[in-house]
Amino acid sequence: MALITPAALGVIVGAAFGCCGTLAGRKWFGYQTKSEMPETLAPGGSTPTFVSLDNALAIHDHANSILFRFLLGELTGVLSQHGYVMTRDATQRTELLSDVKHDVTKALLMKREKFLAPKQPTQSAEESVAYMLSTGYAAGWMNALLKGCESQGWFIEPCRANSRTGKIPPSVQKSGPDLYPLQQMIVQVRGTTGTLTRDLIRGLERVSDEIQITPFPDEGLNENLKGTYGNIVPASPDHSVSYSISWQHCTSGPGFFTDNYGSDLPPCLIRERERRKHISEQHIIVIIQGARHTVSASMQDCLCQAIYRINAGEYEGAEYDNNFGYAFISKCHV
């Protein structure tokens, strides 16, 4: 048994492009259009301009790979909750039972809706997913995604405890041991009273880079990383930012989030917000949590969503579902 590794995620994306309407026909477009449409060249016929086919395709691939990398990470978690895992062993390949496949598709599409429009009301996302399920779009989308995985050598197999009755085996129930230990990250960036939000955001972006290259520590181990970003010379301290990342495991519930799902600030951050109320330094704190098999790419995407919301002017926020999600508080100025 094996889970999808970050190295394989980007490869699978290409095979799943047919899943979305805007992505349909990517292979046809790449081969047919190039022979029919000349490159847009800069004056003098030197190098392609900004408005060129190659540039458009590169940006298209990059933007969509972010989404599908997130979805593939979430797919492993949703499958685990239903008693299945991804494997490289083709001999263990199994078809999802129809009711299980429906639930997996619905859950994954909800996560896609929240990823693409994190501020939309839950009811709006549910209505959108219900429409896709009723029209048959959802089934075709999921089939294309799974076929894309298989084209790259990834197959679905039942967990050993799964009797294939359609019931979730005890080992992967929501409160079961397969969720634990929970993976948790605490990210903090700090500046002086004169530090601008943009500098704190750049510190968070540096943290995002660190998360991408740092594997989550093995079960039972924690890890801490500290660093600085910006001008740290004594003459100009107002533009410096310090950051810290803590990777840790939580062996029992409820973890960071006491509710099953929601967007309310969790109690731990409410207490921290009160504690820091009279501290003058500018700061941002982001907490991220995943289940035992949540991939690092999904946790990095949580940080990216928090960065987007803070950059848009939000001072606190949260989004979590079934032990996976993030929350943040900030004290900063433009």
Score class of each variant (00 low, 15 high):
1 M>Y: 12
2 A>C: 11
3 L>T: 11
8 A>Q: 07
9 L>G: 04
12 I>P: 09
13 V>W: 09
13 V>T: 15
14 G>Y: 06
15 A>N: 03
22 T>W: 03
22 T>E: 02
27 K>F: 03
30 G>C: 06
31 Y>C: 01
31 Y>R: 05
33 T>L: 01
39 E>G: 02
43 P>T: 05
45 G>S: 06
45 G>H: 09
46 S>D: 14
46 S>H: 11
47 T>G: 09
47 T>E: 15
47 T>C: 09
56 A>N: 13
59 I>Y: 14
61 D>K: 02
67 L>V: 09
69 R>L: 00
73 G>S: 00
76 T>M: 14
78 V>E: 07
82 H>W: 03
85 V>H: 15
88 R>T: 11
92 Q>G: 02
92 Q>D: 06
93 R>P: 08
94 T>K: 09
94 T>S: 13
99 D>Y: 11
99 D>Q: 11
101 K>S: 13
104 V>W: 05
107 A>R: 04
113 E>Y: 06
114 K>W: 05
116 L>C: 10
116 L>M: 12
121 P>K: 03
122 T>D: 13
123 Q>K: 14
126 E>T: 10
127 E>C: 07
128 S>W: 04
131 Y>T: 11
131 Y>K: 14
133 L>V: 11
134 S>I: 01
135 T>G: 03
135 T>Q: 02
138 A>G: 02
141 W>V: 02
144 A>I: 13
145 L>S: 04
153 G>Q: 04
159 C>S: 02
159 C>P: 00
163 S>M: 12
164 R>L: 15
164 R>C: 05
166 G>L: 02
166 G>Q: 01
171 S>D: 15
173 Q>S: 11
176 G>I: 01
178 D>H: 01
188 Q>L: 06
189 V>W: 04
189 V>M: 07
189 V>H: 03
194 G>K: 04
196 L>A: 03
196 L>D: 02
201 I>Q: 00
203 G>Y: 00
206 R>S: 12
208 S>R: 07
211 I>L: 15
213 I>P: 03
213 I>E: 08
215 P>F: 11
216 F>W: 04
223 E>L: 12
226 K>T: 12
226 K>R: 10
227 G>E: 04
227 G>T: 05
228 T>A: 02
231 N>K: 14
233 V>Y: 08
234 P>I: 04
234 P>N: 01
236 S>Y: 13
236 S>G: 09
236 S>P: 06
244 S>G: 08
247 W>D: 01
247 W>Y: 15
247 W>I: 01
256 F>C: 02
259 D>G: 03
260 N>I: 14
262 G>V: 06
264 D>A: 12
266 P>C: 08
266 P>S: 01
270 I>M: 10
271 R>N: 08
272 E>N: 02
274 E>F: 08
275 R>W: 10
277 K>I: 12
277 K>S: 10
280 S>M: 04
281 E>F: 07
283 H>V: 09
284 I>T: 08
285 I>F: 11
285 I>H: 11
287 I>K: 06
288 I>T: 03
289 Q>Y: 00
290 G>F: 09
291 A>Q: 13
293 H>D: 03
293 H>L: 03
302 C>P: 00
305 Q>H: 05
305 Q>T: 08
307 I>C: 04
310 I>D: 14
311 N>A: 09
312 A>D: 15
315 Y>Q: 12
316 E>H: 09
323 N>K: 13
323 N>H: 14
326 Y>V: 07
330 S>L: 03
333 H>Y: 08
